[in-house]
Design a binder for these strands. Structure first.
Lengths: 182, 182
DNA sequence: GTCTATATTTTGATAGAC
DNA sequence: GTCTATCAAAATATAGAC
């Protein structure tokens, strides 16, 4: 299983640099010095491979930035700041999450669950902020959480098309807008 | 040229129902009763065809909902409400806009320009709201416009994965959050 | 577990007749 | 302008040897 992990770690790196559109199974195989068939020995399909890459990424990010209810909303900003260092992963994520819209797509369930999890986590963070008196207790946490996640996703699209857009700054401005004069 | 328009109009319809992932040039050709080669006579490539479909859609939407500075921000909400009637188009848009992140993608320029236009239009709407006293004049119009567009895009992703998410309601809640106690 | 080699298969692009 | 026919190409998936 060590090899599988090595593949995923290396794939994160390669994709972060080269993006998704240009990355074939063959290229990832080269990067870990396996043949294409050798790599696919560890994954049942290309789709599964890429889904696992994203799962691995979440794993790493969660470990690094502590994306859970314990941490304040700042960790959310940090992740976004970090994302602008890994354009290819942002691209992979954006691409796969829209492809997976189709219920028949193998990664569909993965993304549905992922959004559920993130909604819950971010909602929890917002409640912490409310409890700490930094966020109006009247605010609808669910809707607001969805809106923050949506804004983060949508900013990625804008940033990919025009890298001068500062995602973290925008999200932080959204936070300002929502918390001002509370 | 009438045929070309007919193709685009029909394509809008087919894609709205079937989505992008499953729609090949051949299927669109069938829908207008042309052979695949016959259809490609009107477009230099598949990518150009789909880009033109999106351009056509903007054209129709603009005509229908009057997406310009004249109209108030309500027209923005209306478009979003309308979008939930055409899932396939939402999917096409989401998919193509992320694919076009790559500067080498043929639709790259199209999307860059599109976002510029929408930023300007929506920014104009926000300024109207400020002038009408419905929006805090202190608010940074550019950032806020970007955030609204981002939220709208991101909500599409969430809605595609889970159609119970109400995009228009969320955006309208965002507007509420930003205009409350002004 | 890893490789070579090949099957698959899909679909976009093009040539050339009518 | 439209068709038939064919090409091209890419990549993924798989079979089977080592």
């Amino acid at each position: 299983m060590a090899k599988r992990e090595e593949i995923l770690t290396t794939a994160l790196d390669v994709i972060a640099r080269n993006g998704y559109r240009r990355t074939s199974v063959k290229e990832l195989a080269d990067a870990v010095e396996l043949s294409q068939a050798g790599l696919l020995h560890y994954f049942s399909s290309k789709e599964e491979l890429f889904q696992e890459v994203l799962r691995k990424r979440d794993e790493v990010d969660t470990a690094t930035y502590g994306l859970d209810v314990e941490r304040s909303i700042d960790s959310f900003f940090e992740v976004i700041r970090h994302n602008s260092e890994v354009p290819g992963l942002v691209q992979l994520y954006a691409q796969l999450s829209t492809e997976a819209a189709d219920a028949a797509h193998p990664a569909h369930e993965f993304f549905v669950r992922r959004y559920d999890t993130f909604r819950a986590t971010f909602g929890g963070m917002l409640r912490e902020e409310q409890a700490a008196g930094r966020l109006d207790p009247e605010i609808d946490v669910e809707r607001t959480a969805n809106l923050f996640l949506a804004a983060a996703d949508g900013l990625q699209t804008q940033w990919m098309l025009d890298p001068t857009i500062d995602m973290a700054e925008h999200i932080s401005y959204l936070w300002q807008l929502i918390t001002r004069q509370d």
